[in-house]
Design a binder for these strands. Sequence first.
DNA 1: TATGAATGAGAGTTCATTCAT
DNA 2: GATGAATGAACTCTCATTCAT
Lengths: 206, 206, 206, 206
Amino acid sequence: MSPRPSIDHIRRPQILAAAAEVIVERGVAGTRIADVAERCGVSPPALLYWFDSKEQLLAEALTVDDDRFYEELEARVDGAAAPGERMVALIETATESADDFALWMELWTWALRDADLRAARERFDARWRAAIEAIVIDGVATGEFGAADPAQAALAIAALIDGLSAQAALGDPEVTNPRLTETVLASAERLLGAELPAGAGGRASP
Amino acid sequence: MSPRPSIDHIRRPQILAAAAEVIVERGVAGTRIADVAERCGVSPPALLYWFDSKEQLLAEALTVDDDRFYEELEARVDGAAAPGERMVALIETATESADDFALWMELWTWALRDADLRAARERFDARWRAAIEAIVIDGVATGEFGAADPAQAALAIAALIDGLSAQAALGDPEVTNPRLTETVLASAERLLGAELPAGAGGRASP
Amino acid sequence: MSPRPSIDHIRRPQILAAAAEVIVERGVAGTRIADVAERCGVSPPALLYWFDSKEQLLAEALTVDDDRFYEELEARVDGAAAPGERMVALIETATESADDFALWMELWTWALRDADLRAARERFDARWRAAIEAIVIDGVATGEFGAADPAQAALAIAALIDGLSAQAALGDPEVTNPRLTETVLASAERLLGAELPAGAGGRASP
Amino acid sequence: MSPRPSIDHIRRPQILAAAAEVIVERGVAGTRIADVAERCGVSPPALLYWFDSKEQLLAEALTVDDDRFYEELEARVDGAAAPGERMVALIETATESADDFALWMELWTWALRDADLRAARERFDARWRAAIEAIVIDGVATGEFGAADPAQAALAIAALIDGLSAQAALGDPEVTNPRLTETVLASAERLLGAELPAGAGGRASP
DNA sequence: TATGAATGAGAGTTCATTCAT
DNA sequence: GATGAATGAACTCTCATTCAT
């Protein structure tokens, strides 16, 4: 019917990507529609043609990338056969891009007062913990890991990564990126009662 | 000299406390001077009589309570003689009030774009990790703990608490307060290579 | 390109004219954005759509009319062939609208503390003196005037007009408009060592 | 009756002097009560103990020095016996302190919209012109000056000084202080049909 | 689809002024 | 006489949003 193909699938992602960039730079609170519009090279009202309101746009921008992250993660992790190797791959993937964590922190803070964002975050975190737990269960099954409670170990590892990533994102001089990865790997070994293989990135050897 | 006694030792803390309350309720971004003023029962300009600007007031409100927290913490922890007991006391203190964590999350998010807040957060975190590390060192010295690297263990425990507290503050159904404390304690045992005594709060028994 | 034709060539002059009117009525210090907006029949933010700030708007309003004044002046003066006639035309043009002088006085006072306005005023005054001086030089060349120093005579005539116009604008009963013109003409004759022809407005005869 | 001598005669002049200073620096519009208070080393409410309102204080500050100026002027001028010498003394006195003229310009601008200030200014100007006119009349009587209309000559000389002083106060590079004095003296000679003696300050000789 | 123009609803901040002390 | 504290009344400016084009 419509001879002109819709550009929905082009414009919306473009706007969301621009919004995510602006949020990282200025924070959700400091992001104005005009900033995002300028980055897209369009006028502010154009954004409101594609999104009902600023709030809706930012909420979507805050969550749109996460699914992609998990897909990439799973692709990388599944390549490794043994649970130990998969765990190392997962940790390295999660810790090597601590800068993106700023967006995650924004989501947290906003989720404190927005039920939809809260639900979205919870969904992502459940998926994340499930991915970890699956590896732990496998490792326990093969005897590679000695953890008694896979769910608790997964929770702990996930929280550890979050806590350290936040500090890295905040530029804490004690938590550089290598130190972050190293600390998570060493802690995971203790939490899992396992010795993990050296990762792709290499690890400080004794 | 002054025909009227100064009340700044009363008003300023009062305003800061009100500001902290409002921040927890509405977030830093959603906090208006008028909200804080109303909670104090004064007019908005009265706040600007005591603080140079809204920004300065909120920044101070975001950090003013932390020192008090550490003082209380140290008081409680020092009461326990053995490192294991002190560690348990510390963990319980840190995890039982996960609600206050919202303020800490606001501080994080604001600190992403404010150097002063970033420095303040770093200072607090350094103090916090040092408190943990001191216990670890003691525990290692007495042989109670088996941790090889006290600094790394302290960093891991601190991050674990942060990561879990964030989820608890966000109302994650998987991370209730008891589960939070329990997970940190169990993980600390593994990270420290130690068995920790049951805390004052009691712990889920098998 | 633009789905709606730009109207900045209409709105900006309209706003500037309204601002000049309000300044004459209330002074720069007493002029509020809301006053100007009301006179334009728009809302206050509309002015900030066209001008970056109140300050910028008022500064422009204070200077925008001057170029037009000089163009009109030159048009009128050039119509007169002989130097004496041109001088009379210039003096009459400059003195017959002493009411507008209030805007010029506002510009002076504001220029005391604003380098841009100071520079603008200086530019206008230089142009004004140059216009006078050109006539004097002509008059001296033709022998119609006897002035020794054209630059000094031009400066004196310009200052005389300013000083008297200020008093007229302030409603000094000794300096009515006719008396103002008459005084400048009589003084100019002495300053230029010339007898000036009767102007269009006529002059008080004995 | 009152054992404590009033300090009216100390405080009020002190405040007025401080106000005049601040006005010269920041302009009437930019002068806040707090500025004046700070310069006096007292608190803002103290000023309102001595003056009913800011407006009244500034109005008084704007006019309080003028009487003193005329008294000083008359003292200096009366010392010179011959009309020509008195005229030179008057002109030199009026033109050598062009910086103070900023206060006079502020008074003008404020007087545009304040009847009291307008009346005050008019009174000062009448006195000023009368002082000039008296000399002119004397000079005409002695035959030293050739002016036909003393009132008009006085008006012209006064206006000339005003116009040039304004430009000097505005920092016009063409109107330096020496050039100002020189131009007024040279113009006065022509306006008065007289040759004026060299002044105390010296004058450019041919 | 998209824009120029405009607006309404605030928000922070300023400041003369008040008043108990 | 003078001050600390506080306030009411403005005022500028911001920004998401609307709407005719």
